[in-house]
Simulated assay, not measured.
Amino acid sequence: MTETPSIEEIKALIFELGLEELIKLMSEIEERLEIMTMMQLAETGFQEWNNPEEDIYK
């Protein structure tokens, strides 16, 4: 199993990237954040359906 790198190790690697690589990485991070934010917002819209008493797939 591989060890998860620390934030400091990730930052050190990021600072070694060139400009084009940094721009691509930023774009991918922004896209992931947008998706995660939308998923969180969508989740709140379905809370009324989260009723354990009606869970027919137990």
Rank of each mutant, 00 (worst) to 15 (best):
Met1Ser: 07
Met1Phe: 06
Thr2Arg: 09
Thr2His: 09
Thr2Asn: 11
Thr2Leu: 11
Glu3Gly: 00
Glu3Trp: 01
Thr4Tyr: 04
Ser6Arg: 00
Ser6Met: 00
Ile7Asp: 12
Ile7Trp: 00
Glu8Gln: 10
Glu8Arg: 01
Glu8Gly: 04
Glu9Ile: 01
Glu9Gln: 15
Ile10Leu: 15
Ile10Gly: 02
Lys11Thr: 11
Ala12Gly: 06
Leu13Ile: 01
Leu13Asp: 13
Ile14Glu: 13
Ile14Ser: 05
Ile14Gly: 03
Ile14Tyr: 14
Phe15Arg: 01
Phe15Tyr: 03
Glu16Ala: 08
Leu17Thr: 05
Gly18Met: 03
Leu19Ser: 09
Leu19Pro: 04
Leu19Asp: 14
Glu20Tyr: 02
Glu20Pro: 00
Glu20Thr: 03
Glu20Phe: 02
Glu21Asp: 15
Leu22Cys: 09
Leu22Thr: 10
Leu22Phe: 01
Leu22Val: 06
Leu22Tyr: 01
Leu22Pro: 01
Ile23Leu: 13
Ile23Asn: 07
Ile23Thr: 10
Lys24Ile: 06
Lys24Leu: 12
Leu25Arg: 13
Leu25Pro: 09
Leu25Lys: 11
Met26Ala: 15
Met26His: 14
Met26Thr: 14
Met26Lys: 15
Met26Val: 12
Ser27Glu: 14
Ser27Arg: 09
Ser27Asp: 13
Glu28Ile: 07
Ile29Phe: 11
Ile29Ala: 14
Ile29Met: 12
Ile29Cys: 07
Ile29Lys: 04
Ile29Ser: 07
Glu30Ser: 14
Glu30Gln: 14
Glu30Cys: 01
Glu31Ile: 05
Arg32Phe: 09
Leu33Ala: 07
Leu33Trp: 05
Glu34Thr: 14
Ile35Val: 15
Met36Lys: 11
Met36Val: 10
Met36Gly: 03
Thr37Met: 10
Met39Leu: 15
Met39Pro: 01
Gln40His: 08
Gln40Glu: 14
Gln40Ser: 10
Gln40Tyr: 06
Leu41Arg: 14
Glu43Gln: 13
Glu43Pro: 00
Glu43Arg: 13
Thr44Ile: 10
Thr44His: 07
Thr44Asp: 13
Thr44Trp: 05
Gly45Gln: 11
Gly45Tyr: 05
Gly45Met: 08
Phe46His: 07
Gln47Asp: 08
Gln47Met: 12
Glu48Arg: 04
Trp49Cys: 07
Trp49Tyr: 15
Asn50Ala: 13
Asn50Gly: 03
Asn51Tyr: 04
Asn51Gln: 10
Pro52Asp: 05
Glu53Val: 04
Glu53Cys: 02
Glu53Arg: 14
Glu53Ala: 14
Glu54Arg: 15
Asp55Lys: 08
Asp55Gln: 08
Asp55Phe: 10
Ile56Thr: 12
Ile56Gln: 10
Ile56Asp: 11
Tyr57Arg: 11
Tyr57Cys: 04
Tyr57Asn: 12
Tyr57Ser: 07
Lys58His: 06
Lys58Leu: 06
